[in-house]
Design a binder for these strands. Structure first.
Lengths: 217, 217
DNA sequence: ATGCTTTTTGACCACAGTGGTCAATCAGGG
DNA sequence: CCCTGATTGACCACTGTGGTCAAAAAGCAT
C-alpha cells in the first residue's frame, strides 16, 4: 500500500491488472517462499528492474497484493452483509452467490486469498496487513452468526448440529458444482450461470424440506 | 520396490522406519519438486551417500515410498471391504473407523498419499506404480458403490441427492472431529478415542433420523 | 537540436540450494 | 592382517534466487 511507487499507480489500468494478476497467480500457486519474481516479470511482460522499481522488494510486493485483495474482498462482503436477513438457508444461498460473483470477477485474487488463508504465509505479512486480514475473517464469522435466522429449524434435533449439517451440505454442494463447472468450462466462460443457480435453489428446497419444521417447507 | 538396495531391507526396523518417515514427511509436505534429499538425510540422520546407496535417485526413492504406502493402504482397505454390508450409514461409519486406524498407525504415509492424490506429482511415478495407484482408487469407489445398501433411504427425496448429502455431512463431521482432536492432543495421544466414536455414533443416529424412512430410525 | 529528468532495460552479482558422485575411511569376519 | 561391503561427507556442476545499477530510451521543455 504505502510503499508502492506512484508510477505504478499511474499506469493504465490494463497494464496494472496484468502485473497484479501475474503476481497474484504466482504467489497463489506457489506460496510466498517458492514464488519467483523472475516468473512474475516474465508473465507480466515487464523487465526485472521495473518490478523492483514499482515495489521495492518481494516482501513489499506481497503485502501490496494482500492489501489490494483485502480491499476488494471487504467491499464485496459488506455488500452481502447489508441485506436484511432472510431465513437461514436463503441467507447462505445469497452469501454463496456473492462469493461466486467475487470469484468470477477476481479469480486470481480469490485464489491468492484462499491460499493465504490456509497456508502459514501470513507470517510474511507486516503487522497492519495481518490485522486487516484477521479482522476480515472475524467479521465474516460474526455476521454469519448474527444474521442467520434459525427459528424455523426443526426442533427434534439440536440446533447446533442442524446448523453444522446444513453448512456442510451446502459446502459439499458448492464444491460439487465447481467441479462440474470446471469439467464443462464452456458454460462457465459464457456466463450462462442461471441454470446452475436454479438447480442450486431446487437443491436448497430439498434441504429446507429436510431441516425445517413441518408446514414450512 | 525393485530398485531398493537389499542392504536397506536388512536394516533394523526402527532405523528403516526413521528413514522412510523422514522421506514421507518431506515429500508429503513439499511435493516432489520442492522436496530436498538434503533435508531427508538430515532428518533421517544418515549421510547423503547412504540415501543414494539405498535408493539410486530421488525419483526411485519417491516410487519406493509410493509403493510402500500403497501396500499398507491396500491391505487396510481390503480388511474393511471384506465385512458383510450393513446399512448405508453404518457402512460409512465403519469405513471412517478403518481410515482413522490407518491414519493413526501410519500418519506420514497418510499425508504422503493424500498429497499425491491431490497434486500432479503422479507424473513422477513410473507406469507400474501409477497403475497401482489408480486401481486402488477405482477399487475403493467400486466397493463403496457396491456395498452400500441404500434401501432404507427415505423416498421423498432423490436417492442420489440423499447419498451425496449423507456423504458431505459425514465428511464435514470428520473434519470437525479431527480439528477438535488436534486442539486437544492429549486424548488423541493416549488413544482414548472411544468417547469420540460414541459421540460419532450418536451423531449418525441423527443422520439416520433425518435420511431414513420413518419407522426405521 | 540540446540538454535534463524520468522511465525502462537486462546483464550481472553473490549466494543458496539442488541431485548426485566418489575417493577415502571404517567395521568386522575369516 | 587383509578383504569386502557399509558408510561418510566434501565436492561437483548446475540452476535459480532476490536484488542492483550503469546505460539506454523516452519525454519534454526550450
Amino acid at each position: 500500500m504505502r510503499a508502492i511507487n506512484k508510477v505504478f499507480l499511474e499506469l493504465p489500468e490494463e497494464k496494472r491488472r496484468l502485473i497484479l494478476n501475474a503476481a497474484f497467480t504466482e504467489f497463489g500457486e506457489q506460496g510466498y517462499a517458492r514464488a519467483s519474481t523472475n516468473r512474475v516479470v516474465a508473465q507480466a511482460e515487464i523487465s526485472k528492474g521495473m518490478l523492483f522499481y514499482y515495489f521495492n522488494s518481494k516482501n513489499e510486493l506481497f503485502n501490496d497484493l494482500a492489501n489490494t485483495a483485502l480491499d476488494h474482498s471487504m467491499e464485496k462482503y459488506e455488500e452481502s452483509f447489508s441485506q436484511v436477513n432472510p431465513d437461514y438457508i436463503d441467507w447462505l444461498y445469497n452469501l454463496a452467490r456473492k462469493k461466486f460473483e467475487y470469484q468470477q470477477l477476481f479469480p486470481e485474487e480469490t485464489r491468492f486469498l484462499g491460499q493465504l488463508y490456509l497456508s502459514s504465509d501470513k507470517d510474511f505479512l507486516d503487522a497492519d496487513t495481518a490485522d486487516r486480514f484477521t479482522s476480515l475473517i472475524r467479521r465474516t464469522q460474526e455476521q454469519v452468526e448474527k444474521n442467520a435466522d434459525t427459528s424455523m429449524l426443526r426442533t427434534d434435533i439440536p440446533h447446533d448440529i442442524a446448523k453444522k449439517m446444513v453448512g456442510w451440505v451446502i459446502e459439499g454442494y458448492q464444491n460439487d458444482m465447481v467441479a462440474r463447472m470446471e469439467a464443462d468450462a464452456e458454460i462457465w466462460n459464457k456466463g450462462h450461470l442461471d441454470p446452475f443457480w436454479d438447480e442450486y435453489y431446487e437443491f436448497l428446497e430439498v434441504l429446507k424440506h429436510l431441516f425445517y419444521k413441518k408446514g414450512k417447507a
